[in-house]
């Protein structure tokens, strides 16, 4: 048995060392598989050269846009083959959206980007780094006061800094196989399908996406464009500048103005209880200002009456709502495609 123990330990250590070397050698791939944002960017970068539109936003956009429905609807209207990619994802924050926007700037062949107007909870977020380094760990958190926690944090930090296997450990989750499948099937299967909540139920139930035409025609957004007349409002310059939604939009718009892509902002629909009070006067003022300053179009669907049956919660659309909304956005964008 002693021989078996020694063999076991030797093999165990050798395999871990080999894995460490393998992960080091393929650091970029493992980074993409271990971090949501890096993965989403990788999916976009793998999309064909002729991709005509990229959606950028949070889980609301991820749930609201079916890229296949959108692509088909636009293709039908403009009578040419249009391919869109939905790069929106759940759990994203402002810093991550900005990081994705930088990728858009570096993609000169992308003609159009459609950005979600996010809520304050997202725009007030900060840039997230996938794994803190030893220095971050040593400096952060309330636990650092206790020596045992500080010691443990330093140890963890050391391993994070020196072992790729530890740094990219999330790439080792069973979900990685799903991610690999998504990555390599992204050109023919909508990656968003797998990331959405309730995917199992959707796979098991037949999707009834028939939308009444009269309902469809009645749903029109409020459109803000650079040359729209500026409405009167009682908000001071300070009110607007200090608004987190305004600040978030400016941060992203500042990056995207360097891009050759045409930028459109879209505010997705919300259930009635979430609709802005007093008709969203402040939002309107913000949209007017952004549209004028950055020469962009903003489509605001947040005030329209969406059937509660099209939501899976107060702010996220379900399968039926997603199909309808993708067609709506396709209709409203294809007029100036």
């Amino acid at each position: 048995m002693t021989r078996r123990l020694l063999l076991f330990l030797a093999l165990f250590v050798s395999i871990l060392a080999a894995l460490e070397l393998f992960v080091r050698a393929n650091g970029a791939s493992f980074e993409a598989l271990s971090d949501r944002l890096a993965f989403q960017i990788r999916v976009f970068e793998r999309s064909p050269e002729d991709t005509a539109a990229l959606f950028l936003g949070t889980s609301r956009f991820a749930d609201a846009i079916d890229q296949t429905v959108f692509s088909d609807a636009v293709s039908e209207r403009v009578e040419e083959d249009v391919r869109a990619v939905n790069g929106a994802m759940g759990g994203i924050n402002l810093g991550e959206i900005m990081e994705f926007a930088e990728v858009v700037v570096d993609s000169p062949s992308l003609p159009r980007v459609i950005v979600e107007v996010s809520g304050p909870s997202v725009t007030m977020g900060t840039t997230k780094s996938p794994d803190p380094s030893s220095e971050d760990l040593a400096m952060s958190g309330p636990d650092v006061e206790r020596f045992p926690d500080r010691f443990e944090n330093r140890l963890q930090g050391w391993f994070l800094d020196h072992s790729s296997l530890v740094r990219y450990r999330k790439a080792l989750r069973p979900r990685t196989f799903l991610r690999l499948a998504i990555l390599y099937s992204a050109n023919f299967v909508d990656p968003g399908k797998w990331a959405r909540k309730g995917v199992i139920r959707e796979l098991l139930t037949s999707s009834d996406s028939e939308i009444p035409e009269e309902a469809f025609a009645a749903l029109t957004p409020v459109r803000f464009s650079p040359d729209s007349p500026v409405g009167k409002h009682s908000f001071s310059e300070e009110d607007l500048i200090e608004d987190p939604v305004f600040q978030g939009m400016v941060e992203i718009a500042e990056i995207l103005k360097e891009s050759s892509a045409e930028v459109t902002w879209v505010a997705p629909p919300v259930s009635e209880v979430m609709q802005p009070s007093e008709g969203g006067a402040k939002r309107r003022a913000i949209y007017e200002r952004i549209a004028r300053d950055y020469e962009v179009t903003i489509l605001d669907y947040s005030g329209i009456s969406f059937d509660p049956a099209w939501f899976r919660d107060q702010s996220h659309l379900n399968e039926k709502g997603r199909t309808l909304f993708s067609r709506l956005v396709a209709r409203d964008l294809s007029s100036d495609w």
């Binding site: 076991f8 165990f12 395999i15 871990l16 894995l19 296997l165 530890v166 450990r169 999330k170 790439a171 080792l172 989750r173």
Partner: peptide, 12 residues
């Protein structure tokens, strides 16, 4: 054992 170690790492 290696598989379990990798699972621990990935979920830690």
């Amino acid at each position: 054992t290696i598989l379990l170690v990798l699972l621990i790492l990935s979920f830690a």
